[in-house]
Design a protein around this nucleic acid. Structure first.
Lengths: 237, 237
DNA sequence: GCCGCTAGTTGAACGTGTTCAAATTCAGCT
DNA sequence: AGCTGAATTTGAACACGTTCAACTAGCGGC
C-alpha cells in the first residue's frame, strides 16, 4: 500500500525537485533574466517541455524560491528571538535577520518584487490568503508579539502581525533599491523605523487615541476585505 | 530659421505621435499584453523597426500613456479645486477625480503598475527625480495645500506634497485590485482615508507631537535620499 | 547640380517563454 | 506475459519583444 502507487509520484517529485534546485542555483549565479528555461532544462538533464510539466511558468519557480527564502529566515530568526524580550528588540531581530537571509539574492530580488507587485501574478503576496508563505510570515510576527509583555489593546494586537508584515514588505522594497555598501542604509532604516514603530504602537495604545485607532483599524480591515480571497476559511457551504 | 532643420524633426514627431496614438488606442481596446508591437506598427502603417526607433521598448509606450493620463487628471482637477477651501475637501476632490480619470483604463492599469513597481524599469516612479510626470503629480498636491488655511508646521508642510503623492499611489494600487462595481470600494476607501489623513495631519501638527513628527520626517528624508537621483539638481560639477 | 551627412525607415533574424500533440514509461490488472 | 490508462517526457513549433545591418530621403554646403 505504501509502494504501489508511490513510485510514480516519487519519481515525479524527484524530477520536480531536481528542476527547482537547478533553477535556483542558476538564478543565484546569473540572475533570473539571464537564466533561460532551456538552460535550466539542459543543466537538469530534462527536456524543456518537462520543466513546464512541473512548473506552469518561469514565475512559478520564483514562488518556490520565495518559500525557500522564508524557511531560511525562520530558521535563523526563531532561535535569535529567544534572547530578546522587548517588542522593540524582537522586531529588530526579525527584520535584521530577514535582510541577512536575503542578502545573497539582492540582484535576483528585484525580479521577485516586480512579479510580486503584479496584481495578476500568482505571486502577488496580497492576492490569496491560502498562500502558505504569507501565512507563515504573518505568524512570525505573531510570535514577535507573543514574546513581549507590552500592553497593547486587543483590537490593535489582532491586526498588528498583519501590519508588521506589510511593514516588512516595505523594508524589503527599500532594500531592493538600496545600493549602499553592505546594505548599510537598509539596516539603518530598520533601526530607525523600528524605533518609530515602537513609539507609534505605544502612542496608539494610549486610551486617548482610541477613536482614531478604531477608525484606522476599520480601514485596515476594509483594505483586507477588498483583497481577493482574504477571509477566514469558510466552514463549507 | 524655423523651417530649415524643422522638416525632419517635424516629420519624426508626426511619426512618433502616430505610433503612440495607435498604440494607446489599441491598449485601451484590447489591453497591453494583447497588443503586439507588430500589430501597432501595422495599424500605424510603419515598419516594426520604426516603432523601435521612436520607443526604445514597449514599456516606453506606457510611460507616454502615464503622462497622458496625468494631463487629463490635471485638466479636471484644477477647475474642480477652485470650489473647495478646506484641506479635506481639496484632497477628496483630487483623489476622486484621479480615479474618475483612470476609470477607462482599469484593466490596462494593472500592467502599468507591474512595470512601475519594477526597480529596474525606467517607469519606476520613484527612480528618477527628473521624471516630469512625478514632479507634476507632486506639484498638484502642493496646490492642494496652498489653497487651504490649515495651520501646518513648516517641516511637515514641506514634505506633505510628496507624502500625499505616495498616498495617492497607494490608492491607485488599491483601485487596481478593486473589482467592485463602479469601483465603489475605492471611492469609499478614499473618503475614509482622506478623513483619517486629515485628522492625522492635524494631530501631527500639534506641538506635543513635535519630536515624533521630526523623527518621522527624518526617516522620510532618509528614504528619499536612498532613491536614485533623488536630489536637488546640482549646479554643475 | 552634386556630395555627404544625419534622420528616418525597413524587414529579416534572433532569443526566449510557452504550447502541444505525440512518444515513452510504468504500476496494476488479467 | 500482455494490456491499459495515467503519469511523465519529448522536442518541434509558435508568438512576440528586440536588435541590427542596410537602405532611403532630404537638407546644407560646395
Amino acid at each position: 500500500m505504501k509502494k504501489k502507487k508511490a513510485t510514480k509520484t516519487v519519481k515525479g517529485d524527484q524530477t520536480k525537485a531536481l528542476i527547482l534546485e537547478t533553477a535556483l542555483e542558476m538564478f543565484r549565479e546569473r540572475g533570473y533574466d539571464n537564466t533561460t528555461m532551456r538552460a535550466v532544462a539542459e543543466k537538469a538533464g530534462v527536456s524543456l517541455g518537462n520543466a513546464y510539466y512541473y512548473f506552469r511558468s518561469k514565475e512559478y519557480l520564483i514562488q518556490a524560491f520565495y518559500q525557500r527564502l522564508h524557511d531560511s529566515h525562520i530558521e535563523v530568526a526563531l532561535p535569535a528571538l529567544e534572547h530578546e524580550k522587548t517588542l522593540k528588540a524582537r522586531l529588530l531581530t526579525v527584520m535584521r535577520t530577514k535582510i541577512d537571509t536575503m542578502k545573497p539574492y539582492h540582484q535576483f530580488a528585484g525580479v521577485l518584487f516586480k512579479t510580486a507587485a503584479n496584481p495578476e501574478s500568482p505571486l502577488n503576496p496580497f492576492a490569496d490568503d491560502s498562500d502558505p508563505v504569507r501565512q507563515q510570515a504573518i505568524e512570525l510576527f505573531e510570535k514577535v508579539l507573543e514574546g513581549t509583555s507590552a500592553r497593547i489593546p486587543k483590537d490593535l494586537k489582532a491586526e498588528l502581525p498583519y501590519l508588521l508584515w506589510v511593514y516588512s514588505m516595505g523594508i524589503v522594497l527599500f532594500w531592493i533599491h538600496d545600493s549602499s555598501p553592505k546594505h548599510r542604509r537598509t539596516y539603518r532604516m530598520i533601526d530607525h523605523t523600528v524605533d518609530l514603530l515602537d513609539k507609534l504602537i505605544h502612542l496608539a495604545s494610549n486610551p486617548f487615541m482610541r477613536p482614531l485607532r478604531k477608525q484606522a483599524l476599520r480601514m485596515v480591515n476594509e483594505i483586507k476585505e477588498a483583497l481577493p480571497d482574504d477571509n477566514e476559511p469558510q466552514k463549507a457551504t
